[in-house]
Nucleic acid binder design. Structure first.
Length: 293
DNA sequence: AAACAACCCAACCGCCAAGGG
DNA sequence: CCCCTTGGCGGTTGGGTTGTT
């Protein structure tokens, strides 16, 4: 019934690949290369569809594939990038040489979700579910508190660090950072920031002032759309960072929070792309702070 | 030891865009 | 233009594995 002709033929084998099949595919690709995947099964002597061959090669057989546990650096990068671009696994994978989108996707769906999930020993009102967390795409990264540790040994810390505070979530539209491609009303951000962070009335926040933009840069990247129960959570780490911001203690701010990326993924996926930080913005931001990765 | 639950992850599915005829 | 093929992508599945009772 499906319209994919390649996988509908009765003789086509499916399921796990045998070592013999792997060997056939490796031998063929390494000697002939791959131009047209639909031709590969016949020429390689495989009873698979071309699509399956392609997937097998790209995800598992190609020589530059990298297997095994993700390094802490990779974990940090995945979390940061996911906060920036959401479930664009291929894009995330492009930043991790040798890793595939499938592997990263699986990793995210199991390992990281597990870390963010409850149980929490202390009851918290209006605590969002893990599904809600992933739906809204709020994740945080911090070197000292979170990602440089063996997370498997410390899940409660992770959980508490991320979501246990009932404070309002601070959002910031990163389009205001560089003033380009800003199709949203960036003027709302300073007021929101002002109110959320609790600056003194005589302290002003002008997004267009370069020194403030620069100073704000390190913790970087909070975005708009503060709606729903998930927005009512602010990590102690972020509280600390915002307190540093409030006091203009930018160095402390950077140290306490080298890299945060929050992005309302749901909003972005509903046609609100213009409010999300562009990937080039994110990449520029990340490359500016390699130590935070 | 057995039964069950939870988790992992390789592979598949469906959709989409690009490109050629 | 339209149609078809192909490759690429993210979402999802389900069999195998591991953990728990």
């Amino acid at each position: 019934m499906g319209h994919h002709t390649c996988c509908n033929q009765q003789k086509v084998k499916r399921g796990l690949w045998s070592p013999e099949e792997d060997e056939k595919l490796i031998r063929y690709i390494t000697t002939h290369g791959y131009g047209c995947w639909s031709e590969v099964p016949d020429k390689a002597g495989l009873q698979r569809c071309g699509k399956s061959c392609r997937l097998r090669w790209i995800n598992y057989l190609r020589p530059d594939i990298r297997r095994g546990r993700f390094s802490p650096e990779e974990e940090k990068l995945i979390i940061s990038l996911h906060g920036a671009v959401g479930n664009r696994w291929a894009h995330i994978a492009s930043h991790l040489p040798g890793r595939t989108d499938n592997e990263i996707k699986n990793y995210w769906n199991s390992w990281i979700k597990k870390k963010i999930r409850k149980p929490t020993p202390t009851p918290v009102t209006n605590k969002p579910t893990s599904d809600q967390h992933s739906q809204f795409g709020f994740y945080a990264s911090n070197q000292g508190d979170f990602l440089n540790q063996d997370l498997a040994s410390n899940p409660p810390v992770v959980q508490e660090t991320l979501f246990s505070s009932p404070s309002p979530l601070f959002m910031f539209d990163t389009n205001s950072l560089d003033g380009q491609n800003s199709t949203t009303d960036g003027n709302q951000t300073p007021e929101f920031f002002h109110e959320s962070v609790g600056l003194n009335p005589d302290q002003t926040w002008h997004m267009n002032q370069q020194d403030q933009v620069q100073a704000f840069h390190p913790p970087a990247c909070f975005t708009t759309s503060c709606t729903g129960p998930d927005s009512n959570y602010l990590s102690p780490l972020l509280e600390q960072t915002i307190e540093s911001m409030r006091l203009n203690e930018w160095v402390e701010c950077q140290q306490s929070c080298p890299s945060f990326l929050f992005w309302d993924q749901a909003e972005g996926s509903q046609g609100g792309e213009d409010i999300a930080p562009s990937s080039s913005n994110i990449e520029t931001m990340l490359s500016s702070y390699p130590s935070s990765l």
